[in-house]
């Protein structure tokens, strides 16, 4: 017996979504089981099962954490960009006093 991850798509314009998993000896039975476990109330039009061991994942998921100093990857980092640019222009227009 193997674990099969079950994906369901409500209609052909929707993305496939992961809905759960079933245990089955092979893909054919996995589909039959998934049909009964996840399509009991006409929830979708398309069904996929994928053997869990065919799904690859990172060994070290800490790689997915954001390294320091990458705030600029978020939109909020650009929230005040107009104000900041304006200020920068003003600064550059002001002659620098000789010391």
């Amino acid at each position: 017996m193997e674990i099969y991850e079950v994906f369901r798509r409500a209609g052909h314009k929707d993305p496939f979504e992961h809905v759960g998993a079933v245990t089955a000896p092979d893909p054919e039975l996995a589909l039959l089981m998934a049909k009964e476990c996840f399509f009991r109330r006409a929830e979708g039009e398309h069904l996929w099962v994928v053997r869990r061991r065919d799904i690859h994942s990172l060994k070290d998921e800490s790689l997915l954490r954001l390294p320091e100093g990458k705030e600029y990857r978020f939109p909020h980092a650009y929230r005040d960009v107009i104000t900041l640019r304006k200020r920068a222009r003003e600064r550059s227009a002001t002659p620098v006093e000789a010391s």
Partner: peptide
């Protein structure tokens, strides 16, 4: 025999 079959057969 297992939960999936239980549901399928009940259905």
């Amino acid at each position: 025999p297992h939960i999936e079959e239980d549901i399928a057969f009940s259905s």
